[in-house]
């Protein structure tokens, strides 16, 4: 894994990682150690880590379920927003559409869901969520409010 490259001073960061769980963990650690993300308020940083982690884990789990590949992450700070772009060469989303991200009903204690939280978190915390399939690549983009909790 290469170190995140901070292009013009601290407004942007770009990182390419292998599409596996450990690389996602280490990649997030590296990204959140950049000046760009360290400059965000704690709440905005937490929100960004939640959404990025869910988006990246989803690519590892689904897009790269049958073959290996890389994930490219580009972050750009514009005023009070973090513009995030993530691309991979894995399998497309089913029907080339983003999952709805609706939480399963909570019926404790026996029927509690153990998954299906990821897209709900992404959709709740991000803005302008967009997915496109282009030339064999998945392109996911969204914006994050860096000043508010987002919920």
């Amino acid at each position: 894994m290469q170190a995140p490259v901070p292009t013009p001073p601290s407004h942007a960061a770009k990182l390419t990682i292998p599409g596996d769980q450990m690389a996602v963990r280490n990649g997030l650690r590296a990204l959140f150690d950049t000046i760009l993300l360290r400059s965000l308020p704690e709440d905005g940083r937490g929100t960004a880590e939640i959404v990025l982690a869910e988006a990246l884990n989803n690519i590892v789990e689904h897009a790269y379920s049958s073959h290996d590949g890389e994930i490219e992450i580009t972050l750009q700070l514009r005023q009070n927003e973090l513009v995030c772009k993530i691309s991979d060469t894995g399998l497309p989303m089913p029907d080339e559409k983003l999952p709805a991200g609706i939480l399963a009903p909570l019926e404790p204690p026996t029927d509690l869901p153990e998954g299906g939280f990821g897209w709900h978190l992404i959709r709740t915390l991000s803005k302008d969520l967009d997915y496109r399939r282009e030339n064999g690549r998945n392109l996911l983009s969204f914006r994050l409010d860096t000043q508010q909790c987002g919920d």
Partner: peptide
């Protein structure tokens, strides 16, 4: 400091495994 949805799913699974 950080828990993702897989981590949350694991915490839920642990609670369910403890039984009623």
């Amino acid at each position: 400091a950080f828990l993702d949805s897989s981590g949350l799913g694991a915490v839920v699974a642990v609670m369910k495994a403890l039984g009623p």
